[in-house]
């Protein structure tokens, strides 16, 4: 029940973003808002088993969202560096690849997912496989420096940020 409601509210926000600029109640027309409420309730009922499957509402805390926005800055910088790095490798063709294992020690699904996607988008690393129980990530690294790397080398201190955001 609660999960359905929360899902419905999130769906409603998305609907409002999609239909911005349709009327004069702030940005929306009244028909739009009524339709949006009805539709998001339906979406909440059908989507309740997925979005908050574990009844885990810690992402509703606004503090975490502020952290998330703050996290984007180092992330984008790292991403730019990654791309320049890959560009260098595309042009010169100098690669030294391998698959390494790291244990970031994140507990929640969302945290590990965020980390994996961040890793995929940043410096020469690509998450290949995940251990479902221990949340260990197996990472394809385009330029292997050590065979047993520590976490800092691979993921630029993302786990710290993500621990603050998602756990």
């Amino acid at each position: 029940m609660r999960s359905a409601l929360v899902t419905a509210v999130m769906a409603f926000i998305l609907y409002l973003i999609l239909t911005v600029g349709t009327g004069d109640i702030l940005f929306w027309s009244s028909a739009e808002i009524v339709a949006g409420i009805l539709l998001s309730i339906v979406a909440g009922i059908f989507g309740r088993k997925l979005l908050f499957k574990n009844e885990d509402y810690r992402m509703l805390n606004p503090k975490r969202w502020i952290y998330f926005i703050a996290y984007l800055c180092p992330f984008l910088v790292a991403m730019a560096r990654a791309n320049i790095d890959v560009a260098y490798r595309v042009i010169t063709g100098r690669i030294n690849p391998g698959i390494v294992k790291i244990s970031p020690g994140l507990k929640t699904d969302l945290g590990i997912t965020m980390l994996a996607n961040s890793i995929t988008l940043t410096p020469g690393t690509l998450s290949v496989e995940i251990n479902e129980k221990t949340n260990d990530l197996y990472i394809h690294w385009i330029n292997v420096k050590h065979k047993e790397p520590n976490i800092e080398e691979v993921c630029n201190g993302f786990p710290k940020w993500i621990r603050r955001i998602a756990e």
Binding site: Y15, L39, V42, A43, F46, I112, T113, A116, I130
Partner: peptide, 26 residues
Amino acid sequence: MSKIVRTITNILYSSILIFGFYIIMH
């Protein structure tokens, strides 16, 4: 599929749902 895909599916599913409803409604 792996945990990452499942988590992303959780996030995307309700978005797809409301987006589909938006397309039908409009």
